[in-house]
Every structure is written in C-alpha cells, then in structure tokens.
Design a protein around this nucleic acid. Structure first.
Lengths: 140, 140
DNA sequence: TGACACGTGGGGAATAGTGGGGAAACGGAG
DNA sequence: CTCCGTTTCCCCACTATTCCCCACGTGTCA
C-alpha cells in the first residue's frame, strides 16, 4: 500500500528518486503513465496489467473508447528502478506534467502519483477546503 | 505488450525506425496496414493472423462488412525488420497517412500505430482535454 | 558520536537512431 | 539476347542519447 507525500528532485537527466518506502513494491518493474488532472501515475507491474486488461477489453470500434485506450496506452512507459532507487521519467511525460526540478510524490493506495509542486499545491488546497462537501456528495 | 509514444524519422528511402522496445516482439515478421482515423497499424504476425481471421469471418453478404474487410485486407503488406531495426513502409501507405519525414509511433497494447505528427497532435490534444469526461462517460 | 541509509550528482560505456554508399535485381531499349 | 539505366535492398559508419555504475554529502537512528 502506497501512502504519504514526499518532495523529491528530478535531476537534469530526468531521473526521479522513488521514496524508500515505495521501492520494495516497485522493484519488480513499474509503469509510468499520464494520469488525470495533469499528474503522472506510477503503477506496479500487477497494477498496470490489471489496468491494461481493462483498456484492451473496451469496444475499440467505438471512437470514444478507442480514443481513451489510445491516450492511456500511448502515454505509458515501462520503467526500472536503478541501484540508487531512481526511475527514468521519459521526456514526453515530463513536459506533460510540467515537471522539472522539484516534484511531489504521493502514495494513492494502489499506485503512486507524481506532481509538479505548483499543481499539487493548488489541487491539495482545493480539496482540503472542500473535503467535507465532497465526502457528502459522494455519500461516504 | 506495446506501450509508449516515440518520435522517429522516416528517411527519404521510406524506412522507419521501430522503437527498440518494440523490436523483440516484431522480429518474427510483421504486417503493416491502414488503420482507423488515418493512421497506419503495425501488427505482429500472430496479431495479424487473429485480425485477418476476424475480418474473414465477417458476414460478407453485408455491403459494409465487405467494404471494411476489403479496406483492411487489400492494404496490408508484410514487412521485415532490417539489422538497424527499421521497416520499409510502402509508398501507398505513406501517402494514405500523410507521412513524410518525422512520424509518431505509438504502442496500443496488441499492435503499433504510426501517425503523421500533426494528425497525432490534434487527436491527442483533443483527447487530453476530454479524458476526464470520456473516462466518466465510459464509466471506468 | 559513529554508522548506516537515503538522496543527489557526475562520468563512462553501451546502444539506439540516422544517413550514406555499394551491390543486386528488375525493367526497358537497342 | 544483351546492355544500360533505374530502383530497391542491404550493410557499414557516425553521432547522440540513454543507461549504468561509482562516489559524495547530508540527515537520522542507535
């Protein structure tokens, strides 16, 4: 289970240090992809296989399903953790999330999310303010 | 599994470099054909056999099924990967997809797609904007 | 206070992407 | 039938990028 929030640097070679507490679960290989709301998602191998299975079972003859599958699959890259516990974030994903230099790495239970600090700050403050209302709306 | 998005050049001899991560799966031979939305599709040998099977089992008495099968089957060409990891894209397919010079190569799980950069950019930006809505609509 | 682990930076080797040249095959004309 | 020209295909070489390994500094825990 991935939980917590960490602040790490992305060096000029595009390498991002994974928090030590997450490494064990990701050591078998991981997949990084574009997430919703302009962040990046990092899945374990198993988590990704599950996600990919769902995408490939969509009715690809339908334009919207095809578009969504294309979006998710084309933006996914397999990554490996090196000896220092870092992963290489591809250039395309870095520019998508607006990441360069410092980043925020958060645990989301079954996966990890990578945010640009400004985007995260804005999103977080927004949720914190409204979390009561959101919870009521969801009925949880 | 083919995933990811890569920017490669098609040289003036019509050769397209296949991303290194895709080569292993395509080394046994591949088939390139026209895809939906004005891109090209690149299948593994097995993937193509499956696809062709599906097409040949369509009810060929229906005009639309007949047209679709003709479209896919008649525009398919077997290709081989050379020592440098490139394939020769036939002239007819190049002009269909509007490819010359730089191209975008994307992984779609069971096959690979080849796009003209402008077409891909337009398609992608359109999806990115709507990905949240589409995901909610599809209920996934 | 010492030792260990985590985060960070840099350098070297391997590999991927690209362009060009030469040989073989094909087609057409004499 | 032969010769020439064109085209296609394959191989080689260069360059840039990526990947991997090693080393350092800092913070934390015992």
């Amino acid at each position: 289970m991935f939980i917590g929030e960490y602040q790490h640097n992305l060096d000029d070679k595009g390498r991002l240090a994974i928090p030590a507490k997450f490494r064990g679960q990701l050591s078998e290989g991981a997949v990084v992809t574009k997430g919703l709301d302009n962040c990046l998602s990092l899945f374990t191998k198993e988590g990704w296989d599950f996600e990919a299975e769902r995408l490939m079972n969509l009715p690809l003859t339908q334009a919207k399903a095809r578009a969504y599958a294309r979006f998710m699959l084309s933006s996914a890259f397999p990554v490996e953790i090196d000896k220092q516990g870092r992963v290489n974030v591809p250039q395309a994903l870095r520019s998508f999330a607006g990441i360069s230099g410092s980043t925020v790495v958060t645990g989301l239970g079954d996966h990890v999310e990578i945010w640009a600090p400004e985007a995260w700050e804005e999103y977080r403050s927004h949720i914190e303010k409204d979390s009561g209302n959101i919870a009521e709306e969801l009925g949880i």
